[in-house]
Design a protein around this nucleic acid. Structure first.
Length: 137
DNA sequence: GCCAACGTTGGC
DNA sequence: GCCAACGTTGGC
């Protein structure tokens, strides 16, 4: 089981929208590092869902339900998409400021490389954020 | 709305 | 293959 963090701008696609839709294709990634992370995802992996730009918080957990396939929204280039489904909404959103203020979370990609949109997380970091979000899964 | 950080592009 | 210029992302 691998753990991930995926980012979305909530006015483009929010966690609530994912819940409403039941599942979604995770497409439009145009960054090689992020794409390679998408390709490393396995069915059943869990991903924290982070709202960037507005909200600035981890709000829920999503599950990977289909592994990487060619991104149909790419008209050229070698890009990938996966399918995700809602898994659990956090009881308490975990704001970026809290993550930055938590010593155990100083090494995660969100802090180290804030512009990467798909990044791996250690199981420790994943659990810690769930704990901050007062959520058991 | 500004600006810093990073990735990508293109000239040499 | 290097590096400057540019575009994009995302926090503040």
């Amino acid at each position: 089981m691998n753990y991930w963090l995926i980012k979305s701008e909530p006015f483009v696609f929010s966690y609530d929208k994912l819940v409403a839709d039941g599942k979604s294709m995770w497409d439009g990634v145009r960054n090689y590092q992020a794409r390679n992370n998408l390709r490393a995802m396995r069915e059943g992996d869990l991903a924290l869902f982070y709202h960037s730009n507005e909200g600035l918080a981890v709000v829920g957990v999503a599950q990977i339900i289909a592994e990487a396939y060619p991104d149909p929204t790419a008209d050229s280039g070698d890009w990938s998409a996966v399918d995700v489904a809602p898994y659990r909404k956090l009881n308490q959103p975990v704001p970026l400021a809290l993550i930055k203020a938590t010593p155990e979370l100083q090494d995660i990609g969100l802090v180290r490389n804030p512009r990467l949109s798909v990044m791996p997380l250690s199981s420790e970091a994943f659990s810690k954020i769930l704990e901050l979000g007062q959520t058991d899964i």
